[in-house]
């Protein structure tokens, strides 16, 4: 029982991290129907910056409140960095392709992902790099053999508020309304006076900011970064976004948690070697029975 609970805990924590990356996919997809293949590699660059900042500031020596404040600072800086980078890429690469065939931006996104990877290669070097353990590894759950450390807590503490903030942003603010309008019909949105390009840029910024925050959490939680980390990261997150119903914010979160749980439990009860395959097999089965994803809304056919 303890073993099962422990695996669930690990699965949910991993899943929360996946969910956070998935949000970046789902935001961008929701608004311009683009699978942003470069998102995982954007996060890799965010993690590069985080590692550089940690060593420049000498954060490994900080303790107590200073550490937590430092983490908040990292989240902010890396978020701004990734958000800004995402906006720049949108301006330079995707915006000229707004009216191009549907698959053209997809290929450009793959191109951007390759360029990011090359930058990461120069930044980090070819080998994996260790991200220092800034947070204490003490177990927060006393006794009972269950383990839940400050690192694990951090993931939850950052992911949940960000998710709530994002929902509020999209549901209630003016910008959020504009985003939803553009997502439904860009032409009509432009006709009612919405600056479509600015709204799209804002979406890229929000998605990038979440990615930047995720990159810091990733570094602190997994403790290893490398120039190739974007790929696997992106693969799971993208899958989570689709599983939950791509374009849906709660969907991305549910998708991420499901993937985390399935991965942990199949590693525990079937074997680590099959875990990756089981995640995708379950994805296929779910999509066969719910073609719009878990929380996605069915699209009406236009005749």
């Amino acid at each position: 029982m303890v073993f099962f609970l422990q695996q669930c805990l690990i699965g949910l924590t991993n899943g929360a991290l996946v969910a956070m990356v998935a949000l970046g996919y789902t935001m961008v997809y929701g608004i311009i129907r683009l699978i942003n293949f470069a998102h995982g590699d954007l996060i890799m660059l965010g993690a590069c910056l985080a590692l550089t900042l940690v060593s420049v500031l000498g954060m490994a020596a900080w303790t107590g409140t200073a550490t937590w404040l430092g983490v908040a600072l990292l989240v902010l800086l890396c978020g701004l960095f990734c958000g800004g980078l995402n906006v720049a890429v949108d301006r330079l690469v995707y915006r000229p392709l707004r009216n191009a065939p549907k698959l053209a931006p997809l290929v450009s996104a793959i191109g951007v992902s390759f360029i990011f990877m090359n930058l990461g290669l120069f930044w980090l070097g070819p080998a994996d790099r260790s991200f220092p353990e800034l947070l204490p590894a003490t177990n927060l759950l006393a006794g009972e053999g269950l383990q839940f450390t400050a690192k694990d807590l951090l993931v939850i503490v950052v992911v949940v508020p960000l998710m709530i903030a994002l929902s509020v942003l999209v549901k209630t603010t003016r910008l959020g309304k504009a985003m939803r309008a553009v997502s439904q019909d860009p032409t009509a949105a432009a006709l009612v006076g919405i600056d479509v390009d600015r709204v799209i840029a804002a979406t890229f910024f929000v998605g990038g900011f979440l990615g930047g925050a995720a990159s810091v959490i990733y570094g602190l939680y997994i403790n290893t970064i490398g120039f190739q980390m974007g790929f696997q990261n992106g693969l799971y997150a993208f899958t989570a976004a689709v599983l939950g119903g791509i374009g849906s914010i709660p969907g991305a979160v549910v998708g991420g948690l499901v993937i985390g749980l399935v991965r942990a439990l199949s590693s525990a009860y079937v074997g680590e070697r099959w875990a990756g395959a089981i995640v995708f097999a379950i994805l296929i089965v779910i999509l066969v029975f719910r073609p719009e994803g878990l929380l996605g809304r069915g699209t009406k056919e236009k005749v």
Partner: peptide, 27 residues
Amino acid sequence: PTLRLRGDYLAIVTLGFGEVVKVTLRN
């Protein structure tokens, strides 16, 4: 079984199938 899926959902199914095949071949 996956014909009902539209656009990017079908894409992700093919992606997932690819991963399943790779892991199966390996194991």
